[in-house]
Every structure is written in C-alpha cells, then in structure tokens.
Design a protein around this nucleic acid. Structure first.
Lengths: 222, 222
DNA sequence: CTCCAACCGGAGAGCTCGTCCCCGTTTTGC
DNA sequence: GCAAAACGGGGACGAGCTCTCCGGTTGGAG
C-alpha cells in the first residue's frame, strides 16, 4: 500500500475532527500491529498481550492505551492485514499478464503479509455480521475469487477449487510449527507454497474429495 | 498396527516381570493417548493436561497416575504415533504397486494418525539424543526416505524434494486452524493433502527455492 | 460369590501467568 | 522552553494449570 493510501485509510478510520496522533504514537501503533500480527499467526487470537508489547519493543501500558482491550487489537490487526492483502491482490490483477502468475504472486505476497493472522476472523471473538468485518471478508473473498476465475478461464488453474481452498491452505502452510525455530521454518514455507501452487495447476491430475467452499462456510456458527 | 503387534510392543515397553495392567487401566491409558495426541496437534506440546483428561473422559488423577508428568506423556504420545506411522509406511511399501500411490497412501494415513503430533519431537521439551527418541525419528525418516526414493526413481515424484518437505507440510496441513470448527476443517484437509500431493508429481512444473532438508536440520538447537 | 488390591474421579492447595491500572518520567511539537 | 501527550515499569488482581489427597468403585482371582 502506498504511503498516501495508507494515510487516507488511517484518516478515514480515525474519523474527522480527531486530532492527529503524535509521531511517536503513530510509530508505536504500527509496531504493535506488526508484532500482534506475528503473534496471532503463531498462537491464534489468544496470544499474550504482554508478550506482544514486549516483542513490539513498547511497554504494556502503551499497548493498552492504543487498544483498550483484546478485541480492539484483533480488529485492528484484521483490518491492517486486510488492507495490505487487498492492495496486493489488486496489484497482482493489474500487473501480471499471466493469470496463473497473478495468483502465484498474490499467494506469495499474502504469505509475507501473514494472511494467517486473518484466522481470528473465523473465531468466536469476532462478530461476523458487523458491517466493517463483513466488508473486509467480502473484499478479500471477491479478490481471490477474481484471481481464481481468471486462472480457471484461461485453463491455467484447475477448475475444482474454490476461495476457501486457497485461503485455508495458505493460512495453514504459513503458520509457524510449534517447536521449530522460525528461521528454519521460513526456508520451508516458500517451498511448500510453491508445491501447493503446482498442485493447483490445470489440468488436474486427480479428483479432489469433497467440494470447494467459500469463506462464508467456515464461520464457526454454521 | 495389528492387535498382536501392539501387544508385543506394549510388553516390550513395559518390560518383563511387571504385572499385567487391569483391563480398565489399559483402556484408560489408550484413551488418554488418543486425547493427548489430538491436543498436541491442536495446541502444541504445552496443551493443558486437565483438558486432555477431560476430553479423554477420565479424571485428572488418572492421567497423572499413568503419566507422572508432562514429559512422560509427550514421550508416550510420540512413540504411540511413531509406531502407527511406521506400521503404516511399511504397509504402503508392501502393498502398493505404484510408487506414487504408495507415497499418497502413506501421507493420507499419516494425516489420519495425526502425524502433526510429532512436532513436539522438535521442541525444547524433548531430548533429541536420547536413544529411543533418536531411533523413533530415524525410523520415520528412513521410511519416508524410502517411499520418496522409490517414487523418484520411477520418475513419478519430482526429484527436488526431501523428507523434511513431506513431513513438515503434512504436519502443517493437518493441524486445526484456531477458530475453525474441527468438522469444517476436516473436510478441507483431504482436499489440501491431495492438492499438495499433486504438486509433488513428476515432472516438476516449477523450480523450488531453497533446498530439501532432513528432519535432523529441523532440530531447534541447530 | 466374595473379597481386596488396584484403580478411579472430584475437590482443593499452591503457583504461574495474563490482564489491566497507577503514576513518575520522557518526548513531541508549537 | 513549556505544556500536553505519550511512555514504560511495577504491581494488584484474577484465571487457569499442575499436581496431590482421599473416599468410593471396580475388576478378576480363588
């Protein structure tokens, strides 16, 4: 996301008339979001807030000042990640000539942006019907849908997969495995994503069990 | 694993001269191992023991009687899973004519046996040099190696992957995603495994980054 | 069938860890 | 240079986890 776009989005979310945050406050807010993103990917939505503050290099009070409770932080990370993912997807649609390559770019980028952190989106701690959340999910879903559709129409992506297949597998493959040093695991992640992507190519060499699903179907209260 | 084999293995581990356990005790031990396996896959080696006892349908005291502390339980689950995986792999080698199909059978079976529970094998809580642990890891590794080698020699499996690629991805793809109901996720797991397997087929449609790794390289103290 | 040793499970003590607030100190921007 | 805003360390409080104690129950040998 460009600096200007980010700034506009931030202003929009803060609302009008609210005084601009001080420079150090903005910087800390950003640091906390990054740290929280990593923590949520690694430990789920119940990661320790003190731990997040520590790895962000700020005091715990600073975290609580920016995000009064856990839910606010979860939502903050959610929208932070969603914004970046959407930007990424639009860029992939815009710049990649080959539909499969566009999907691959998106997948690799989404992995870097820790799309796995969106899994709290599917948790109890998250109201799926709140308008802003609904909009976030829809945006990511439609974007992925579009990338898939193009690939499938060009017969570069197998026809029997859906949005849910991409999103869920992507989340799984990029999560740290407990007990493995992160550095070690990152070396694997890129390989596994590539292997998975290779499995998505058309023509399909096998028949998949079950059926493709949307993100909607993954909601806990189904 | 056959009943007889399981019994022999159990006797071997219990040692000679120790009186046979009562039927209900043996049954509870088994239940606890199953529950602990699920919990370790879901939450890593630090899963709550009381929670394990509850989902096993036994009192917590029963758990502590069978497994005096967490380490003993971790080891118990480890060897329980290892035994089943090895049996599975040997069966796949024995019964499948096609090398790729053998690998696929093994992978699917290992997923059912929650091979992801072996990730504590890579954790701090685990002495990788203790002879029995070393042997377990070696057995699984050699078996997977052999399945891979056959597939690769028959040019059915791409040449640029290693044991670590299979084991790690398998663990990741079969782990429950936090916030997703298990029932929902199981439907996906089979699909994703198949997609990943399709990515393993020869000829390789892409070049993988990095290099194949053994389980040895995944040890935390590298 | 009877009996007792082995086993079981609930309840609770002790402790660790996570959450959240208070307040003296530092930083920012005008 | 100063006032307002933000910072961070420390600590009270509570939740949850580990592990133990003990009265009741069950399996199976004789």
């Amino acid at each position: 996301m460009s600096q200007a776009t980010a700034s506009r989005a931030a202003t929009a979310r803060r609302g009008v008339g609210v005084p601009k945050a001080r420079a150090d406050a903005a910087r800390n807010r950003e640091r906390i979001l990054h740290a929280a993103r990593e923590a949520f990917v690694a430990h789920g939505a119940e990661a320790s807030l003190d731990e997040i503050a520590r790895s962000a290099g700020v005091g715990n009070a600073t975290l609580y000042r920016h995000f009064p409770d856990r839910d606010v932080l979860v939502h903050g990370v959610m929208h932070f990640v969603t914004d970046r993912i959407v930007e990424l997807g639009e860029q992939a649609l815009r710049e990649s000539a080959e539909p499969f390559e566009a999907l691959a770019c998106f997948v690799r980028g989404a992995a870097e942006e820790r799309i796995g952190a969106l899994c709290p989106m599917l948790s109890d701690r998250f109201d799926p019907d709140e308008p802003e959340n609904l909009a976030s999910r829809r945006r990511v879903e439609q974007l992925t849908q579009e990338l898939l559709r193009r690939g499938q129409e060009a017969a570069q992506v197998r026809a029997d997969i859906g949005v849910g297949d991409v999103m869920v597998a992507l989340s799984q493959l990029t999560r740290p495995l407990p007990g493995v040093r992160c550095g070690q695991l990152d070396r694997f992640t890129a390989r596994h994503l590539q292997l998975y992507l290779d499995g998505l190519r058309a023509p399909a060499p096998s028949r998949l069990p079950g059926h493709a699903a949307t993100l909607e179907e993954l909601r806990p209260d189904d």
